[in-house]
Amino acid sequence: MDLKITLFFLICCSCTVYSNGKATIPSFIHLCKQSDPEMNKCILNTVTELKPNLAKGIPEIRLVPLSPFKMEKLSLKSGNNLELELTDVELGNLMSFEIEHFNMDLGTVGVELNMKFPLVEVKGKYKLKGHLLLLDLNGSGHCVINLKDVVLKTKLYGKRTQKAGKEYLDFNKCDVDIQISDADVNFENLFAGNKQLTDQTNGVLNENPQAILTEFQPMISSSFRSVILTVVSNVFNSFPVDELLPK
């Protein structure tokens, strides 16, 4: 395609997101009013209505794609001399979420959000070294970690800020409590590609899912914290609170 035509196309696309240099909320998003005593219920209904759009993201409100949710890096260093680094990370099956509890308090600028997922799939390139279940682990390659029956309880904390004379909600902290019923892993290329040892080691790990979860929980919590904070802060940093939640 000719470069000028390509640039014109990109500019036209940009104009659907911004009007006079200002981000605009798409008309298909139902806005909830601060004065509504059922505001939290309204927000939940809006999220449910938007669920089909969440997989690919909604660029107009800086909502990143959730299917999959991509992260550059996750790292873990445990007290058992276990080091795990994941890069090019993808969290899959997030669209299976169900919201069990939601409460937003505009006075304290806080949000409580409880969710559950039947399955979350973590994929990425790994580097692993250390000890787990008396196994001496060493390897690098591709890995898949399946987390089953995930229950996530989060609390977000924010503050009101001023930008260009308008008030925004800035969410900058997220506490995460996570419970996972079961898990299985597949680390390729352990022990310099020795397939027999790799298969045996993956088998031993999968026979002891709670040991895996105990070691990996800080990293797993960090990944969900990143998802929640990214989604919420991107949206609320893009629009004044009175535009997202009109009075």
Rank of each mutant, 00 (worst) to 15 (best):
L134D: 14
L134V: 15
L135M: 10
D136L: 04
D136T: 13
D136W: 05
N138L: 11
V144W: 04
I145P: 01
K148N: 10
D149V: 12
V151S: 09
K153P: 11
K155Y: 05
K155S: 13
T161V: 15
T161C: 10
K163L: 08
G165S: 02
E167D: 13
L169I: 15
D170M: 12
D170A: 12
F171N: 02
N172T: 15
N172A: 14
C174N: 14
V176W: 04
V176K: 03
I178R: 08
Q179R: 14
I180M: 06
I180W: 03
I180Y: 03
D182R: 11
A183Q: 07
A183W: 07
V185E: 09
F187S: 06
E188P: 01
N189E: 03
F191A: 09
Q196C: 03
L197D: 05
T201S: 04
G203K: 06
N206V: 02
E207S: 10
N208C: 06
P209Q: 11
P209T: 14
A211P: 10
I212Q: 06
T214F: 09
T214R: 12
E215W: 05
F216L: 15
F216R: 04
Q217H: 02
M219F: 00
I220C: 04
I220G: 01
S222M: 08
S223N: 02
S223L: 04
F224R: 00
R225N: 03
S226K: 13
S226H: 03
S226W: 01
V227C: 00
I228A: 01
I228N: 06
